[in-house]
């Protein structure tokens, strides 16, 4: 409680109160995360339980009744009678799960490699940063696709759908760690020269302890900013991969998979199967992006960009 009160009184919260864009995008993002977590409770139907589906309900238009069964669906249904609203909730869940996990993975990997490079220097530093440079010159989506392609080959066909989500997380994470590593290394190099680090060395703390307990807390702000921006990127990357058919499988559709499915009905006039997942993805990506932008301007860490 004490901590919460000091947070409310902080400069950070003051700046937040004065930025309507940040408040709105924070609310949208938080709302989406909440609905995704509570999806099984909120969703009117479970779209992946075949026993609850009625093919007669297929292609019901949004905001109206089905002609045959008289059932009502908020955002309409797809060709198999699945409620679009429920599939979006479950899709949002997968998209956010993959996004958060991939960023977490990239963050742990990038921060540890960045700290390692900054603390050891010399050859280790050179090797890590050259790998980062090489990877940075390729677009992240290509790296993710490459990792995904290899992983798909290694896993036996009958397991592919089950591990697809984890493969997705690892491939996006491996494509995104570079940003973290570069920024953490740069910031840690600066911190390492400061007096408090010298003092910690003087009293004989180990290098690992100095890196994790002294330097890391002081560069956490920049890590947070990159994590937010990476989250938007990871969500878009995941949606793109799934849209291309090399991401989340149809049995566990993310927003990208739903858009891929909906695209097929664009020409036959069932616009709602495509429009609502697309709008959800757009709102999610936009709100996280705006929030990241605002965070960067507010905390204003010296980032190389």
């Amino acid at each position: 409680m004490e901590r919460f009160r000091s947070f409310l009184a902080s400069d950070f919260f003051y700046a937040f109160k004065r930025a309507p864009v940040a408040i709105v995008s924070f609310c949208i993002a938080a709302f989406m995360i909440l609905t995704a977590i509570l999806a099984p409770l909120i969703a009117p139907t479970n779209p992946f339980d075949p026993s609850t589906l009625n093919l007669m309900n297929g292609f019901t238009a949004p905001f109206s009744k089905n002609d045959f069964t008289g059932d009502h669906f908020l955002l309409g249904t797809d060709d198999q009678g699945r409620d679009v609203f429920s599939t979006i909730l479950y899709g949002l869940r997968i998209s956010l799960f993959v996004g958060f996990s991939a960023v977490l993975f990239a963050m742990v990997l990038g921060v540890s490699l960045g700290l390692l490079a900054a603390m050891t220097g010399g050859r280790t530093d050179a090797i890590i940063m050259r790998i980062a440079d090489v990877q940075l010159s390729f677009p992240a989506i290509l790296i993710a696709m490459l990792v995904f392609g290899i992983a798909k080959g290694i896993t036996p066909p009958e397991l592919r759908n089950e591990v697809a989500v984890w493969v997705l997380i690892i491939s996006i994470g491996l494509a995104d760690w570079v940003q973290f590593a570069r920024v953490v290394r740069g910031a840690a190099m600066v911190e390492r020269q400061k007096e408090y680090v010298e003092a910690a060395m003087l009293i004989g703390r180990g290098r690992v302890a100095i890196a994790l307990k002294h330097i890391l807390p002081n560069i956490l702000a920049s890590v947070l900013v990159i994590a937010t921006i990476s989250l938007a990127l990871a969500i878009i990357t995941e949606a793109t991969l799934s849209f291309l058919g090399v991401g989340a499988p149809p049995t566990q559709p993310s927003l990208g998979t739903l858009i891929r499915i909906g695209q097929g009905f664009l020409f036959s006039g069932e616009w709602w199967i495509l429009l609502f997942p697309a709008l959800t993805l757009l709102m999610l990506a936009l709100s996280v992006n705006l929030l990241g932008d605002w965070l960067r301007n507010t905390l204003n860490p010296k980032m190389e960009k």
Binding site: I236, T240, L244, L266, F267, A278, N289, L290, D293
Partner: peptide, 22 residues
Amino acid sequence: SLIGVSLPTFLIGILLIYLFAV
């Protein structure tokens, strides 16, 4: 342009198809 950056490429493509082709 900020909205444009947040929009994934494939969504822009689908949007253009819908508008100019369909």
